[in-house]
Design a protein around this nucleic acid. Structure first.
Length: 806
DNA sequence: AGCACGCCGACT
DNA sequence: GTCGGCGTGCTC
């Protein structure tokens, strides 16, 4: 029996199947999708069985047998294996990277080396002394741990001992899977059959008898120790007399342990919601892989539609996957799912510990749940009978993985839906241009909801031209209109959300006399000033430096701070409205686990009047007393070197505006901008998605960008500038010669940040409409550079669904 | 990717 | 003479 295996060695040359013999004792067990340990060259690595066969093209004497099976049940289903083959081609990625990204991190291999003392060796007295000192009584040493603490002399001595055969090195393949156990008490004597002994027990030790009696009345024979509220001496007494014993029982980690979720039932749907709901139902019933684009304005009740369609899916005894952007996987969202579906929901997101993620994943794999709610990677949830996949906030950038494999969760979801013949719902108030264009074209089914639940009015949006403010002599970052409105709301005890898309204190420092700007010595980017630690930081490589008091160029002391971050806004806010209570939310204040939730609930409890924050407050906030939203610098994103800059600006402004007046009180939004005439800002005031869509489509058509063309971005970096340029040139020429005449190839061009961590960055872009040999051609790119790529100097990455052009 | 094999320079 | 530099090529 032959197992065809993908090994965990991520390189172009090893990105193929290797055949191994299956030892006879494993033959009944070995199944595709299982992890195995194999000898690969001189070392041991993890691998995945792709398929089982009877013959191999490799001659039998060259075949090795696989070492061991890691799993009894394959973690990857046959469908996931099939999906992995599609995805590695689609994303031009190594197969192993795809397989690994389908599993929770705890199941990835962990490579260690053990040092083991050989028996019966004939070594000198001094060697013996050295080895005894190193090993003491331990049967083995972990190489990494030992190496860290040993001296250079000891390193030398040890490698000699290995060479002389006194010590051997054994490679070990481990995984990070752990289980959580709980101490239980088990009754080993029945008080009924040992009545006499029980009576004696009851006579002298009343408490112990009570416990025995109570345990004997329970359904199970073992019971969690910590739930028996008795002193440990009572249990100890019972143990000594042979009534009970303690055991460890494996329990699933429950990230929401101790939280009570009160069951909710379906809310009544509004007319628009009902109509949408009824359009989706037939696809579920008829098991069609139809793709719905649900565009519903903020507050139109998309989540309730998700919940009710999932309910229909569950009634058909099928499973549902619900994807949410990491950033909006808020407690509010999780609670809504838990309340509706109770213990049938598994939640997968980054705030869970490794072990919790692993247990939630196992619950899916074992079929203990039928709904998975999670961020991007939950698209690989190992269900086997998927009836529906939902992607909420479909336009969000976080659905794109920016590491290998560079995939977009939307593409994977659509592929899986095809395999399972089930519908997909893409939901958003501001769909991506690509998806909306497909819906308009009829590739997707377009469903729209223009009204908020209970007919709450859309907020009133006003744009303030900050150039005017400057002319009036207002140099602060708050316009007069915004200050006036904020005072008014605080008086009325209503709440305010202020949005600024930039953390830190200020963006850069500059010398007023000579124009010197502090830049990172390793990257072509200016350093950001962080006030609490009084340091200049590089956000790309982590370089930091104390702030100079004098200009390093001209020794002038006229150093000024430019640009504004959330820290500085908070400071100025205190000056302008001293009575305002402010909560600041950005990466710097929400770093610790649970702080996100804590700050939000504090705001919900009216412990502050103003919530000031970055991106992370744009979504999912739903508090009834927010009646004012202020956007401090609407054009911050507009001028980024990215063809999606306008789209992102419109989406963000719409999302933030949607935080205001969601309930009884009317909402108002103030947008401050230096380019108020831009359509991506203007259309927000009119809540006019389709208007924006048409204008932006025109721009994309003229510039030849998606949705009119597909893009591929090839990114090249090297320590040497000329090597990077040369390699990019080579790639561009190769593509010109091997793709059709319709494809347009641009480059080499320097990336917008031309150097990061001392590496020069160049790129080459392909625009195409139909290109049947694309993935094959892209795969062959790597052959242009055989050796150079191995040396580690040159790096080439291919992205078939690029997000940013940076 | 690792790791061994193999071929050249600077050292006890 | 040998130790160790890293270029080259292979892994079922």
């Amino acid at each position: 029996m032959i197992a065809r295996i993908i090994v965990d060695v991520s390189a172009k040359q090893t990105d193929r199947q290797f055949d191994y013999l299956v030892p006879p004792e494993y033959e009944p067990l070995a199944t595709p999708g299982m992890r195995v340990v194999v000898s690969f060259g001189p070392r041991k690595v993890q691998g995945f069985i792709l398929s089982i066969g009877q013959d191999s093209s490799i001659s039998n004497d060259k075949l090795k047998a696989l070492d061991s099976l890691t799993d009894l049940v394959p973690p990857l289903t046959t469908e996931l294996i099939e999906l992995s083959v599609w995805l590695k081609n689609h994303a031009v990625s190594n197969h192993i990277s795809v397989l690994k990204s389908m599993l929770p991190s705890a199941m990835r291999a962990n490579y260690r080396k053990h040092l083991i003392l050989n028996d019966d060796v004939d070594c000198s007295e001094s060697d013996r002394e050295f080895l005894l000192k190193q090993f003491q009584d331990k049967p083995l040493l972990d190489w990494d741990d030992w190496y860290k603490h040993a001296t250079t002399f000891e390193h030398k001595e040890m490698s000699r001992a290995i060479n002389d055969g006194f010590v051997r090195v054994e490679p070990v393949v481990a995984t990070g899977e752990t289980t959580k156990t709980e101490r239980h008490v088990r009754l080993i004597r029945d008080p009924k059959t040992s009545e006499e002994a029980f009576l004696t027990l009851a006579k002298r030790t009343k408490k112990q008898a009570e416990i025995v009696q109570w345990l004997s009345e329970q359904e199970t024979d073992h019971y969690p120790l910590k739930q028996l509220s008795v002193s440990s001496s009572v249990i100890k007494g019972l143990e000594e007399k042979g009534w009970v014993e303690k055991t460890d029982v494996v329990i699933g980690r429950d990230p929401y342990e101790g939280r009570e979720f009160k069951q909710t039932t379906n809310m009544e749907l509004m007319a628009e919601q009902q109509e949408v709901f009824e359009r989706i139902l037939p696809a579920i019933e008829e098991e069609r892989s139809e793709i719905f684009l649900l565009r519903g304005v903020t507050g139109s009740g998309k989540t309730e539609i998700y919940l009710q369609t999932i309910e229909k899916v569950l009634k058909k005894r099928k499973e549902a996957i619900m994807l949410v952007p990491e950033i909006s996987l808020t407690p509010q969202m999780v609670t809504r799912f838990k309340e509706r579906f109770g213990s049938r929901v598994a939640v997968l997101h980054s705030a869970l510990s490794k072990g919790e993620k692993y247990d939630e994943w196992q619950r899916i794999r074992k079929g203990e749940v039928d709904v998975a709610v999670g961020a991007r990677s939950a698209v690989f949830a190992p269900f086997q009978n998927i009836g529906m996949i939902i992607i909420d906030e479909e336009h969000e950038g976080s659905y794109k993985q920016e590491e290998e494999p560079r995939y977009h969760a939307r593409d994977v979801a659509i592929k899986r839906a095809e395999l399972y013949h089930c519908p997909v719902i893409l939901g958003s108030a501001t769909p991506s241009l690509e998806s909306y264009a497909r819906a308009v074209k009829g590739v997707y089914t377009l469903l729209e909801m223009e009204r908020r639940v209970n007919d709450v009015a859309m907020p009133d949006v006003t744009i303030v031209d900050m150039k005017d403010e400057l002319r009036h002599g207002n140099r602060s970052m708050f316009s007069d209109a915004l200050i006036e409105r904020m005072r008014n709301r605080i008086e009325k005890q209503e709440q305010i959300v202020l949005f600024l898309n930039r953390r830190g204190y200020s963006t850069f420092i500059m010398c007023r006399d000579c124009g010197y700007v502090a830049e990172c010595p390793h990257c072509d980017i200016s350093l950001t000033y962080h006030q609490p630690i009084n340091q200049l930081q590089c956000h790309y490589c982590g370089y930091h430096h104390t702030v100079p008091h004098q200009c390093p160029e001209c020794t002038s002391d006229a150093i000024r701070y430019f640009g504004t971050g959330t820290q500085k806004v908070e400071e100025e806010l205190q000056e302008v409205i001293p009575e305002a209570r402010v909560i600041r939310m950005d990466v710097d204040t929400t770093g610790r686990k649970g702080s996100h939730e804590r700050l939000l609930s504090a705001f919900g409890n009216h412990e502050a009047d103003i919530l000031l924050g970055t991106q992370m407050i744009a979504k999912g906030l739903d508090f009834p007393d927010i009646t004012l939203v202020g956007v401090l610098a609407a054009d911050a994103m507009l001028h980024l070197p990215d063809f999606r800059a306008s789209e992102r600006t419109f989406q963000l402004l719409t999302q933030v505006s949607g935080r205001a007046g969601r309930h009884l009180k009317a909402g108002e939004v103030i947008i401050q901008s230096y380019t108020p005439e831009h359509y991506s800002i203007q259309d927000v005031t009119k809540h006019d998605f389709t208007g924006f869509f048409q204008k932006e489509m025109l721009m994309r058509k003229q510039a030849g960008y998606p949705p009119y063309y597909f893009l591929v971005l090839i990114h090249v970096s090297d320590e040497a500038l000329d090597a990077a340029v040369l390699a990019t040139e080579k790639i561009a020429n190769y593509l010109k010669n091997n793709l059709s005449d319709q494809a347009k190839i641009y480059g080499p061009v320097a990336s917008s940040i031309a150097r990061i961590k001392d590496r020069y960055r160049y790129q080459c872009m392909v625009k195409y409409k139909i290109e049947p040999n694309l993935t094959e051609t892209l795969r062959n790119l790597y052959q242009l550079f055989d050796g150079e790529l191995n040396k580690g100097g040159l790096q080439v990455t291919v992205d078939t669904s690029p997000n940013m052009m940076l």
